[in-house]
């Protein structure tokens, strides 16, 4: 088993250090960079399973979690990842803190920047918010979800989960099902899975498909039974229940009938099929509890574990860049 020192040494002596100052989108990655992040994350999984989990790669560094949208899961995953690498972590939730309502995203960022953090993890409801912020601060910005646009660490942890479950991502057929239009998870996953050589299918009602989706290089299905037929992986997306108001779908009961994952639809997939969900789940709406909790098919708990390791890999790669003074 690798020790922390081994990992530190391997990062420092890498032939191709991580080239980006920020981690905003999977679009900027090429395949070797993505594989390298996954290899590193893999090593961190081993560390995380030891009793002694603490490493020193981010010692002395400060990470700020800036979550304009509440997310216990992602925020604590980043917090754990940073702490295990030895960083100090500050959590800020502008909606609940004393920051006044009139303060803009950029004001907040500039204020934080003056406190000299090294890494800034941001989640915001507007597409492009993380990119905008990265132009205004001098630290590394990690996108933890910007509107409907991207959630690149989620895609990385999903790829890591798949690689460990199947050995490799290349050649897998993955059906991403549900509300693709409003999903940053879907956009990041389509990009990264395709980069890693998987075939992607997008499944959902036409009202929840983004405009121009037919040109994403993915097969689009409006009939879930056909969409999941023979696939290796079914990745469910969360349906935000307020979508009923916008006339996207008529009711949760109709949605779950045609687009919810149950054992009957799952039976149409490959015999070795595995099921994923980025959480939090609407049980009984997009996924049946019996499927979500079945340890033979569900990778959902595994995804949460991989989340910490994948984020450690991103933070460590960006920090190595800081150290090199780039």
């Amino acid at each position: 088993m690798e020790t922390g020192a081994d990992i530190e040494a391997s990062i420092r002596t890498r032939a191709f250090p991580f080239p980006h100052p920020h981690f905003l989108s999977v679009q900027g990655l090429n395949r070797p960079q993505a594989e390298q992040l996954l290899d590193l994350a893999d090593a961190f999984v081993a560390v995380n399973r030891q009793a002694e989990k603490k490493l020193g790669l981010l010692r002395g560094r400060t990470l700020v979690n800036l979550f304009f949208e509440a997310s216990t899961r992602t925020q604590s995953s980043f917090e754990l990842a940073a702490k295990r690498l030895g960083a100090d972590v500050v959590n800020m939730s502008p909606r609940t803190s004393s920051m006044t309502k009139g303060e803009t995203l950029i004001d907040t960022a500039v204020t934080l920047n003056a406190m000299k953090p090294d890494l800034l993890v941001v989640r915001h409801a507007a597409s492009g918010a993380a990119a905008l912020l990265s132009q205004k601060v001098s630290c590394s910005v990690i996108n933890a979800g910007d509107g409907w646009h991207e959630h690149p660490t989620q895609a990385l942890l999903d790829a890591l989960t798949l690689r460990r479950a199947f050995g490799k991502v290349e050649g897998l057929t993955v059906a991403i099902c549900g509300d693709v239009q409003h999903s940053r998870v879907a956009r990041s996953n389509v990009g990264l899975l395709q980069l890693l050589g998987a075939r992607v299918r997008l499944v959902g009602p036409p009202t929840l498909m983004p405009s121009g989706v037919e040109r994403w290089g993915a097969e689009v299905f409006h009939d879930m039974r056909k969409g999941v037929a023979g696939v290796d992986v079914v990745m469910m997306l969360r349906l935000q229940l307020e979508r009923m108001d916008g006339a996207f779908v008529p009711s949760t009961r109709e949605y779950s009938r045609y687009f919810g994952l149950d054992s009957e639809k799952l039976a149409l997939a490959a015999p070795h099929v595995r099921v994923m969900h980025p959480g939090p789940m609407n049980r009984g709406v997009e996924i049946e509890s019996g499927v979500a909790d079945d340890p033979r098919v569900s990778l959902i708990q595994e995804q949460v574990e991989m989340g910490v390791a994948a984020r450690m890999a991103v933070l460590a790669s960006l920090a190595a860049r800081l150290e090199a003074g780039q």
């Binding site: 597409s127 492009g128 910007d146 509107g147 409907w148 646009h149 991207e150 239009q181 940053r184 956009r187 983004p210 405009s211 121009g212 989706v213 040109r215 994403w216």
Partner: peptide, 15 residues
């Protein structure tokens, strides 16, 4: 404007 580009950017769009 609704289309491939706005779809990829994740921006609310109108046809």
């Amino acid at each position: 404007t609704a289309g491939e580009f706005s779809g990829r950017l994740g921006l609310p769009s109108a046809p």
